[in-house]
Amino acid sequence: MTAPKLLNVASWLPRSRANGPKTRMVLWLQGCPFRCSGCQNPDYLEFQMNRIVTVEQVWEVFQQMPDLAGMSFSGGEPFAQAVALAELASRVQAAGKTVLCWSGYRLEQLRSSQIPGAKDFLEHIDLLIDGLFVELQAENLVLRGSKNQQLHFLTGRITEEDLVDIPRQEWMVTPEMVTYTGFPIEVDSKK
């Protein structure tokens, strides 16, 4: 019997429209080797224990919402937890759903076998958004914070045509909390 794979989750949303096509579950992973100036998730950078869950626990929650289109992974840096995420992403795809992932690494780096589990995780990602956030290149682009970041449609299960009507920002208000997700909107101060 193998030990269950663990994830260190910084935050999660059971439903979001701003983090990929259609309605998706979103996991933000704790810990990132990069320190991008202007990072919008600075609380998720440190490699510290936050909320430790098993892949099975996340999968059980996901299965309770059959109307979801898929799952999105952000961070922190998801590829810092590639081994466990590969298992979760495999399950999501096997259920006929899609997987979207952001990474500060470039696709070429992820394919180089330098990062444990990266190649296996890549096999279960439908859309990868790669590249560090560069504050000086910030733009209002779909699913990206800066113009150096690239969209990689790895399987054809998500296409460019699927990336319409994705809100740039999203606010969820419940009696317990207020949650913001998405990408800051750049305001042109010259207007």
Results as ranks from 00 to 15, higher is better:
I125K: 01
R168D: 11
W28V: 08
L27Y: 04
V61I: 15
Q93H: 12
G38D: 03
A86W: 06
Y44T: 15
F47A: 13
W171K: 03
G96T: 01
S146F: 04
M177T: 13
L143G: 07
D188E: 12
T155C: 02
P21N: 05
F73L: 05
P167D: 04
P66H: 08
S37D: 13
Y180V: 11
C32T: 07
A86F: 06
P21L: 02
P14V: 11
G156N: 06
D130V: 02
D67K: 08
Q57H: 12
N148C: 15
L110E: 12
T181L: 11
V173S: 06
K190T: 14
E161A: 07
V164K: 10
P78N: 00
R91Q: 13
E60R: 15
C36F: 05
M71R: 06
E135Y: 14
D120K: 15
D165N: 15
I158E: 01
T174A: 09
L85E: 12
A138F: 07
I125G: 04
L68A: 06
L141W: 13
M177S: 15
Q48D: 13
E135D: 14
H124A: 01
Q137C: 07
W12Q: 15
N148K: 08
L163D: 01
I166P: 08
M177I: 10
H152Q: 03
V26A: 12
K191G: 13
R168H: 14
I185L: 08
R51G: 12
C39P: 01
R51K: 11
Q137A: 10
S74L: 14
L136P: 01
E176V: 13
A86V: 09
L27P: 02
D67H: 05
K5H: 10
R144Y: 11
E135N: 07
V53W: 12
R15N: 03
E87D: 05
G182E: 02
R168V: 15
K147H: 11
Q30Y: 00
E170P: 00
E46R: 07
A10N: 10
L107A: 12
T2I: 11
E160Y: 07
V92W: 03
R106K: 10
E139K: 08
L136N: 11
I158F: 07
Y44L: 15
E170V: 00
A82F: 05
F153W: 02
T2W: 07
N140K: 09
L45K: 03
R168T: 11
